[in-house]
């Protein structure tokens, strides 16, 4: 998860944050890291660029991007799977 935190910081230009500042279960949006809707799109880009995962079902977003841990679990589950058309 440390690598994923580094990737999130780089992708979202969170230059004031270090990986250790982000808790594994800390909410990414609103009251947690305070990410916004554009950040959500950048996280989708990160999944595509780094892990070749396409978030094809929009309903998966809120669950997948709840925290770093849920994001890591989503990556683990979907890596290597073919994205359904």
């Amino acid at each position: 998860m440390a690598d994923l935190k580094k990737q999130i910081i780089a992708q979202l230009n969170l230059k004031d944050l270090k990986p250790e500042d982000i808790g594994d279960d800390q909410p990414l949006f609103v009251e947690g890291l305070g990410l916004d809707s554009i950040d959500a799109l950048e996280l989708i880009v990160l999944l595509q660029q780094e892990y070749h995962i396409k978030l094809s079902n929009a309903d998966d977003g809120p669950k997948a991007f709840k925290s770093v841990r849920t994001m890591a679990e989503y990556i683990t589950t979907h890596q290597g799977q073919k994205t359904p058309k």
Partner: peptide
Amino acid sequence: EIPSPALFV
């Protein structure tokens, strides 16, 4: 490649 939403805005 993949258009950047953060740049687009």
